[in-house]
Structure formats: structure tokens, C-alpha cells
Design a protein around this nucleic acid. Structure first.
Lengths: 240, 240
DNA sequence: CGTAGCGTTGAGGTATGTCAACACGGGTGG
DNA sequence: CCACCCGTGTTGACATACCTCAACGCTACG
């Protein structure tokens, strides 16, 4: 399932980076060859299975990570256990709150993910020296802020039906289409429980709204987790 | 009503800045004397009355502004008119989405506000040359992101009672106490309608919950807009 | 004194939550 | 191979928190 490359650890130059699909994306795209070579000495490529916790709320941050593949779920919980997903991260996002000693969220692998883990001091040292890198990190923060605010509208003002449509639309526009399926079809990276925590609804309501969208022909359901969208514009109309 | 100072435009040195309470806060705190002098040539001090629109969603951004006094309301509207407040800005925040050609929100003066208006090119030029400045802007963006995510929990998972308590707690911890009133008392910068748009509720529900908090002795109501909080910890308990 | 804007209160409706039963699918062990 | 179980998802019946609609109070202002 997972392709292991022998050549990675036998070389001085960051071969890993050369063959890395994120080389010119995310934070690595802001680095010069030299900087990349220096940074690569302290990075590790890591795989996590769906469900594994990557970072706990209010816990010290040991490292950052560049998301190479998969989806990360960021969430918060109230004392009594009520949970809210506050963000999703896709490749090539940087995982970890910059310049904080503690995480403000819990990060969990929503799907199987590949990460390029960067020790906290290594990235922060580089951040202080590379303005382009800091700029890119800021641009990501600003984009996440825009997304968070968009989602606040969904949480605060949309109906359950619109929330579910908005979620599916979000995923449809962020996920690669699955190979084996026709045109616009994708795997949901989140369980119904996760979706409900993202939307501020119950699993039952999410399930009912998905069934309804299916009944209305807006979406097709292949495999519970696999959704097809014949007409994205039609789905968009349901978003309110 | 509006204080106009004659000395502002008659001087080479930024007298305005020397006497400005935001001199060492917000973005100005990251600037050297020279930089400040250069920037001050293109800034204007502006007063806006409560209710005035400062920036429209999807409209080009002509300028940034440093908030000197008062509260700014950031909001978004759906096509059908449903509205959601997605953030509040207090002094010494920077108003305006950095590095965007268009605003992603509508900004409105929630109370009377004083602004230090900075033309877009002036600030962006300075941003590209001053790493400390860019750093400070990033820190604000990251803080706003944290706040937005905190608020997503409130919107998605809290009850109406908890939402209202959370709002009052937020304001109580962000506003200066009013002079004429006892210890912990403050003016609400938002109307009931604004509060309901912030909380994703109706005005009626907000009103009922405020009445309830008053009946329970958690808050006192002086003047509709003026609230007293005898015990902040007790209010905190109502936040869920 | 009348009107307009904002806030409060009440009565009743509805969307969503709650509780419970059931369906499906995948693993494990006989 | 089947029996069983467990996690996940769906569906139904009922409860309720919040919304909707409507009336009314208060204050400011002409």
C-alpha cells in the first residue's frame, strides 16, 4: 500500500525533498536550496493512521508538520464533552500554531496522513531568518482566518440542510476525485460523527440530511464514505 | 463633536504619533522612529460615528486603519439577508485584510470609533521592508484565528443561555470599565440586533436570556446598553 | 403629543435534539 | 462457512429549545 523508497536515507542531499510533491508548495516552496538542505536534516517523514491524535489541546507543542497527504481535523471540546471541529487541514498546510508554546486545539488524523515533521526550534529559527518563509506562514494564517469566518456563517446562520450541503461542497472542492469512480466522486475523510461535530449538529440530523440530498438526486452514495456529485452547481445551490 | 487639531498638518515630525496612545501598541509598536515618521506622512486620523460602514464585503480595499478607540464589527451576509458577525476589533487592532485586493467582510463602526487610516500601498510597502512589522501583523492574524475558532465552539455547540453569557464575558474582559459606574460595569458596544447576529440567535432570544441573567442576579442592567457584573467568575460559569 | 426606533414579553409553531430500534459490514473465533 | 459481535450509519417517534409573529413599553425626538 505504502511505497517505501530505499534511496531516501543513503544520500547527503535532500533526495526526499527532491521527490517530495510538497517541494514547491506549502512552506517548502518559500525556501532556497540551501535552506531546504539545512532544514531537511532535522525533518522526518511520518505516517499516521486515521484516528491517531497528533496534538492535544493545551499541551506543549514539540514540533510542526507539513501535511503531505490526507486530512487533519482540528477540534475543541467543552468541559462536559461537547465537541466542535474548528478546521480541516489538507496538503500542503502547515500543522501547528506558530509562535505558541501550547496548542489551542486538538489535532487528529481524519484520514491516513503523511506528514513531514519539523522540530519546533528548527522551524522557528528558520522563520526568524527567512522573511519569505514567515510571509508564507502568514498567508496561510490569513487564509485559515478567512475559512474560519466563512464557517462561522455556516454555523451561526444556516439550516441543517444547508450546513450539510456546505460541508459536502467544501470537501468536493478540496479533495481529489477518487480514481476508480466516475468524474466528480470522492471519499469523505470524516465519519458522520466528525461531520456532525464540524456542523454543530447531531449524527442523526446529518444522516437524515444526507439521505434527503440523495433522495433529491443532488448526490449519490456509493459506499457510505464515498459520495458522487453529478452537478456541483446544483449542490452549491443547496448551500444557502 | 469631532475634535480637530490644527497642529497635525503643520509639523514635520509626527506630533500626532507622539501623543497617540497607540504609539507603542498595535502595528506602530513595531516601527522605528524613522519608519513612523515616514508612515505618518500618509496617515490620517479619522472619526466615525456608530453605524457607519467602513469597508464593504467584496469591495476593493483602499486603505488599512489602526483602531484607536471604539469597537469595529466584522460581518458577512448570505444572499437572502441572513447576517453573521464574524469578529470584533478593538484598539489597537489593524483593520483590513492584509495582502488582499478585496475585503472578505463588511466592517462597520459598532460604537463611535477613532481610526488612524493608512493608505494600502504605504502599509504594504512598509510591510515588505520591515520584518518586525510583518511579524506583528502575523501575530494579530494568528490571534484573530484563535478567537474565531473559540467562537466557532460557541456558535456550534453552546445553548442560547451560554452564548449570551459568553458574549457578555467577552465584552466584559475586552472593554474598559465605564468611569461613572461602580467597579465592573461597561457599555455594550452592540445593539441587541448585533448581538443576535454575533451569536446566531434572534433578538427575542437574546433579550430573554439577558432578562434571565438579570433575574438570576448574574448581571445588573443599568441603562439597556450598560451592564454591571458583580461577579465575573459567576458569569464565567454560565459560559458552558 | 405623536411617531419611530429599540427592547421586552407572550403564545404558539417548527427545526433539530433525544431516545430507541434496526440495518449493514467487517472482524473474530468456533 | 457460519455465528456472533461491534462499530457505524440509518430511520422513526417524541421532546424541546429556539424561532416566528404579535403586542406592548420605554425613550428620544420633532
Amino acid at each position: 500500500m505504502q511505497t517505501v523508497r530505499k534511496d531516501i536515507h543513503n544520500s547527503e542531499i535532500p533526495v526526499l525533498c527532491q521527490s517530495c510533491e510538497a517541494r514547491h508548495q506549502g512552506i517548502c516552496g518559500a525556501l532556497s536550496g540551501e535552506e531546504l538542505t539545512a532544514l531537511a536534516k532535522s525533518t522526518r517523514r511520518v505516517h499516521k493512521d486515521a484516528g491517531e491524535e497528533l496534538m492535544a489541546d493545551a499541551m506543549p507543542i514539540a514540533s510542526y508538520a507539513s501535511v503531505l497527504r490526507g486530512v487533519i481535523k482540528l477540534s475543541k471540546v467543552l468541559e462536559d464533552g461537547r465537541q466542535q471541529v474548528v478546521g480541516l487541514q489538507f496538503a500542503p498546510d502547515l500543522l501547528g500554531r506558530p509562535f505558541a508554546t501550547e496548542s489551542r486545539v486538538t489535532a487528529e488524523a481524519a484520514s491516513d496522513v503523511d506528514l513531514c515533521v519539523i522540530p519546533k526550534p528548527a522551524l522557528e529559527e528558520l522563520l526568524s531568518r527567512s522573511a519569505p518563509l514567515e510571509h508564507r506562514v502568514m498567508m496561510q494564517a490569513l487564509r485559515e482566518l478567512d475559512e474560519a469566518r466563512d464557517w462561522m456563517v455556516t454555523l451561526g446562520r444556516k439550516t441543517a440542510a444547508e450546513k450539510v450541503a456546505s460541508f459536502l461542497y467544501l470537501i468536493a472542492t478540496h479533495m481529489d476525485p477518487t480514481d476508480d469512480a466516475p468524474e466528480t466522486s470522492f471519499d469523505l475523510p470524516l465519519s458522520r460523527a466528525d461531520i456532525s461535530d464540524f456542523l454543530g449538529l447531531t449524527v442523526e440530523t446529518v444522516s437524515r440530511q444526507i439521505s434527503r440530498l440523495k433522495a433529491d438526486g443532488v448526490i449519490g452514495i456509493v459506499n457510505f464514505r464515498q459520495i458522487s456529485v453529478p452537478d456541483l452547481a446544483r449542490l452549491r445551490l443547496r448551500c444557502g
